[in-house]
């Protein structure tokens, strides 16, 4: 309560300010301000279609073109022992371009500077990156005796939570496991329909409720269904939520509590992360770790041009292991994370 009054009073002042500004504007003849450039709406004017030729600014394009194969330049330098600033600059560029982030990049470059590179800079950098990813990645899929194992999927909007669940369900049923899916995303329109279609494909049972229903109750019902059928595992979807809203994270906390209650046992909480995400991914990981005790990351959309380097920062700072990666549209394109392959792909950038 302490802050409320301060905040409200502050906002009242803002309101008063708005009134003052509005009055002043009335007095003034045309406002001498550079009006925010808005698309004006004119009626019935033929629209010229944009043409491809003048589309791309060539100078910038050329500059961007040089980003590829940057690590080849490092290799070509072939430095051993102490590293020159030029070499370290190239290393920095590689890491920054992969979304590793300024802080982590600085730390890695500093480490490289002190260690030197007795066997070449490529090897040294690979070792450091590989060392950042050195932790256990086993996936727990068994609950204690008499309880249903639950995998809970959390993340921001549009990262591919529902698709990830569909793919994992397909994978698990193919291994002969009996799977129940809980359509806990009751916010996004037709999210349950999307999950139901995946359930059909995978041969998994889907428990859903109407849109706007309480996600906790959906998961509760799904647990009941899974227990009575003797299912091996429950995959629980949740609505995408931004990581800077306490209310949405509190809701998630509650969902997790419900999923962890008898007969359920949350054995894995996966944060689904989009590989194209930049520095915000670190915030996402931090907030979801605090709210939902994330045990692993599913890195999706790695089949594009994005490298997903931010997981290096996440693993170094928060020690959350990446457990699966999505490398394609197909149901079998979700595979266990391979740190060696990942580091190699970073260095090819």
């Amino acid at each position: 309560m302490i802050a409320i009054i301060a905040i409200i009073v502050a906002l009242i002042v803002v309101g008063a300010l708005a009134v003052v500004v509005a009055r002043r504007r009335q007095h003034r003849v045309p406002p001498p301000l550079a009006a925010p450039p808005m698309p004006e709406v004119l009626v019935s004017e033929p629209v010229p279609r944009p043409v491809l030729e003048d589309a791309v600014a060539p100078s910038l394009r050329q500059r961007l073109g040089s980003s590829r194969g940057v690590f080849d330049r490092v290799r070509a330098l072939g430095t051993r022992g102490a590293l020159s600033d030029d070499v370290l600059d190239v290393v920095e560029e590689v890491l920054l371009r992969s979304d590793v982030g300024v802080t982590t990049t600085d730390a890695i470059v500093a480490q490289l500077r002190t260690q030197g590179a007795p066997e070449g800079v490529a090897t040294a950098l690979r070792d450091i990156l590989r060392g950042s990813l050195d932790r256990a990645r086993d996936v727990r899929d068994q609950a204690d005796e008499g309880r249903v194992a639950v995998w809970l999927f959390v993340g921001v909007n549009g990262v591919g939570k529902t698709t990830t669940i569909g793919k994992l369900a397909t994978r698990l049923t193919a291994q002969g496991r009996s799977v129940v899916l809980a359509a806990g995303d009751t916010f996004r329109a037709a999210a349950a329909d999307q999950l139901a279609l995946w359930g059909e494909r995978a041969g998994a049972d889907v428990v859903r409720a109407t849109e706007g229903a309480d996600p906790g109750s959906v998961i509760h019902d799904a647990l009941g269904r899974a227990a009575s059928r003797g299912a091996d595992i429950l995959l629980a979807d949740t609505a995408g939520r931004r990581a800077n809203s306490t209310n949405l994270l509190d809701e998630l906390r509650k969902v997790r509590r419900v999923a962890d209650r008898e007969p359920g046992e949350v054995v894995e909480t996966f944060l689904v992360l989009d590989a194209t995400t930049g520095q915000n991914a670190l915030n996402q990981a931090r907030e979801f770790l605090a709210a939902a005790a994330v045990t692993g990351i599913v890195l999706t959309k790695l089949d594009g041009t994005a490298r997903g380097g931010i997981v290096i920062a996440i693993e170094r700072e928060l020690e959350i292991p990446v457990k699966f990666v999505g490398v394609g549209e197909g149901a079998h394109d979700l595979v266990p994370f391979d740190p060696d392959g990942f580091v190699d792909s970073l260095l090819e950038a």
Partner: peptide, 14 residues
């Protein structure tokens, strides 16, 4: 385009 996109935004946009 998603505002949280990282360095890949350029490749995608291009």
């Amino acid at each position: 385009i998603d505002a949280v996109t990282g360095q890949d935004a350029v490749a995608t946009a291009r």
